[in-house]
Nucleic acid binder design. Structure first.
Length: 317
DNA sequence: AATACCTTCAACCGCCGGGAC
DNA sequence: AGTCCCGGCGGTTGAAGGTAT
């Protein structure tokens, strides 16, 4: 953490650095609530902040975003991080995209402190040589092996950390979703079969691992019994104007960030969002058959490995 | 109680890719 | 085609707080 810079009284054009003051947070929060995300340099200017746009973006994404989950990572989240890291390596934003409410920065920090250390300890106590590299690797000791339960429940493409004003995005073609009998083998482990309606890693399910039911009531968890996907009502995303409308009636409760909870329910914004949410393309384009590549990998294929884990009841804290 | 060491995590830095001009 | 600007990403830093001695 850094000391907050003193306001540049002598040179008002000088941009501040360091920790954000509560006043700055308020300014940014109020501006974002009123105007939504636009060009970040404009945000900084129009909100009256002597910060660079980048700094505003970072502050919003890593701290002020209403859908952020706070607190310690659950064991399930830990397992998922380890597993995803074994597939994706240090692609923190990709990993974060599958952990609703978590940021890439948070996951990166968590990895570099807690998990890395744990892996190091476990590897030193086992016969296998080190595995502290950033290269993709198999999950290893120190964690319960990732299981279908955890993966399937958690492999959700969250509102990407790159999209600040997009509470929920969800495949809106549920009627066209395939049902399939699912057997798969991942890392030498066979998993049970069942019928599912949606590739789970594509099932964006909103905040806190839950979503709004047909009655508009927020529900935790993803699934009903027997692998039946509980389908949240759609957030309508107009293709014409990108207007995002949350059509729930306000039963959402944010258990760890209540100061922002109303935001979710009231926002109907037309993001100027010029970046078009690259991270979300993976969701949006999936059914259109557009392959999304990441480096040399076919990310669809990679994530399909995960998506073949069966669903089970699960509730993200 | 004082000090040293360790851990956590917010924030910065530099690079890269994409879009606009 | 070249340049500039912006957003996004991963790596790194460093202060604060915690723990050990």
């Amino acid at each position: 953490m850094r000391k907050p810079d003193q306001p540049a009284k002598n040179n008002p054009t000088k941009l501040r650095k360091g920790l954000w003051s509560p006043e700055e947070d308020d300014k940014l929060m109020n501006y974002m609530l009123a105007n939504g995300q636009g060009c970040w340099s404009d945000v900084a200017r129009n909100a009256g902040l002597q910060r660079c746009g980048k700094s505003c973006r970072l502050r919003w994404i890593n701290y002020l975003r209403p859908d952020l989950k706070r607190g310690a990572f659950s064991p399930q989240e830990e397992d998922l991080i380890v597993h995803l890291h074994s597939i994706l390596g240090n692609r923190w934003s990709q990993i974060a995209a599958r952990l609703p409410g978590r940021t890439d920065n948070e996951i990166k920090n968590f990895w570099n402190s807690t998990i890395k250390k744990r892996l190091r300890n476990s590897s030193s106590s086992s016969s296998s040589p080190k595995s502290d590299s950033s290269e993709p690797q198999e999950p290893m000791g120190g964690f319960t092996s990732i299981n279908d339960h955890d993966i399937m429940a958690m492999c959700m493409d969250s509102s990407s950390s790159s999209t600040s004003v997009q509470p929920v995005a969800l495949c809106n073609q549920l009627s066209q979703l395939p049902q399939f009998e699912n057997t798969c083998e991942v890392n030498g482990t066979s998993f049970a079969s069942g019928y599912y309606h949606m590739p789970p890693c594509l099932a964006q399910v909103g905040f806190e691992g839950g979503f709004y039911g047909d009655d508009g009531i927020y529900q935790s968890g993803l699934l009903g019994g027997e692998g039946e996907l509980l389908v949240p009502p759609l957030v309508s995303i107009s293709s014409e104007d990108n207007t995002i409308t949350n059509n729930n009636s306000g039963n959402y409760t944010n258990d760890n960030n209540n100061r922002n909870s109303n935001y979710i329910n009231t926002i109907t914004t037309t993001p100027t969002n010029n970046n078009n949410n690259k991270g979300d393309d993976m969701v949006g384009n999936y059914w259109g058959g557009e392959n999304v590549r990441m480096g040399e990998w076919d990310l669809d294929d990679l994530m399909r490995d995960i998506s073949l884990f069966p669903f089970l009841d699960f509730q993200v804290e």
